[in-house]
Design a protein around this nucleic acid. Sequence first.
RNA 1: GGCCCCAUCGUCCAGUGGUUAGGAUACCGGUCUUUCAAGCCGGAGACGGGGAUUCGAGUUCCCCUGGGGCUACCA
Length: 488
Amino acid sequence: MSKEIRVRMAPAPTGRFHIGTARTTLYNWLFARHHGGTFILRIEDTDQSRSSQENVRQIMDAIRWLGLDWDEGPEVDGPHAPYFQSQRLQLYRDAVDRLLAQGDAYPCYCAPVELEERRREMQRQGIPPRYDRRCRDLSQPDRERLEAEGRPRAIRFAVPDEGTTSWDDLVRGRVEFQDSELDDFVVMKSDGFPSYILACAVDDTEMAITHVLRGEDLISGTPRQIHVFRALGLPLPRFGHLPMILAPDRSKLSKRHGATGIDEYRARGFVPDAMVNFIALLGWSSGDDREILSRGEMIEAFSIEGIGKSGAVFDAEKLEWMNGVYLRQMSAEEYVARARPFLESALGSVAETFEDDYVARVVLLEQERAKTLAELPELTEFFFRDPEEYEDKGERRWFRQEGAGEVLAAVREALQALDRFDDAAIESAVRAAAEKLDTKAGPVIHTTRLATTGRTKGPGLFELLAVLGKERVLQRLERAEQYIRDLG
RNA sequence: GGCCCCAUCGUCCAGUGGUUAGGAUACCGGUCUUUCAAGCCGGAGACGGGGAUUCGAGUUCCCCUGGGGCUACCA
């Protein structure tokens, strides 16, 4: 019964691609995929001074990194190309001309500074700051005079004085605004570029968008847009306004709250699947208790009914947990491939000095411990460099113990004798050494760990030693023995 | 200030008139164990307030309170 579903994400390239934008993108994508519809990416670069190519690139990078592919849009094109509003100016001009011809819009010659001044004055008097419509009923001679003066002009939409504009919001139900609350909004700026309200309405129609899913911050623009659609005789899409993503203090998430850009999370070692899963659950629920959902499961379960109405605080701790889950369930190949860049940027080119296989075995040892890829360099540093010092706590507990040096010597001798240096062989050698020393295995293991890694925690000792390799292990043990002798 | 939206554990979600109000995270305890994690088991932790409707309200309605968004020639 329903025609093909077409949705779009229409970011303005005026800043980084942040969490909130990512979620809107994701919901649109899920909605399209769930219904076998089309997901379109459109760049709303109508703000000439703040848009940049660099931001466009970053936005597309981020969306691709998240794995949300668009069916129509920049670089993939489609039947409604171009997908940059800055390249569709004629369309908006035509629309504005029609509005003008119909008397639904009029030129406004007020300068921004004047507007600003009047706005302040209204605020001072405690009345709602709104455009006073002084250019709405300009006489023809006045217009010609202003025009002759070469005054810049914007085009404003003439909103009716009374009436109500309402729609059935997909997530909120009926929303209603009094037209008397609306002022005569700008539909085309003096630089000849359309305003968001107009461009968006025109494009949504031209691109045959059926559902507009966007942030709640745009809800008050909706009645204005509806006026534009109606004046132009265009069919209305369905609107759905998504709740905001909030900072821990429940205000709108912004830079001052720390990382908000998707690229920042990427740099911090989060993986796309975890990001997507986590963000999906910020304001949407499959209806059951599942927390970890694959993309397929999300697509399958996604519905607008499952979207909540209230704002959701972004809980970075839960994201970390979820990222850990994804890291742990990731295939060894993918995990290693994703981990490697983080090691190299932090530790220099480990690839030059260490075999690929060694690096892979190292990071694999930490797969179940890491919450983010970014903590890998710190976690695995001792695999690439000899420990320069020993943790204080460990030193007091193990190295200053009577006979610590003998313990290490015994372990070293036992390991020295090994031909095969693998987990099992190491384990039995170490345990045998402990037995010979007539002590429990625990203290021997801890002392050995400290001697070979400088730390009190980390991967299982036997696996760790096996990866480190016999030569390095023996060397480090010897050094530690010397260190202990020097302690006196 | 005006308009619009929202309101269940600290946080994210279930719960669509009858539930010991459920799960996840974070926190605490236990267990496993060579450490740290992970896992497993357990604990603590919420319906903002007041009316109304009803035999019965977290669930419906109204008011209050609280929070948020918008209030640009930005989107």
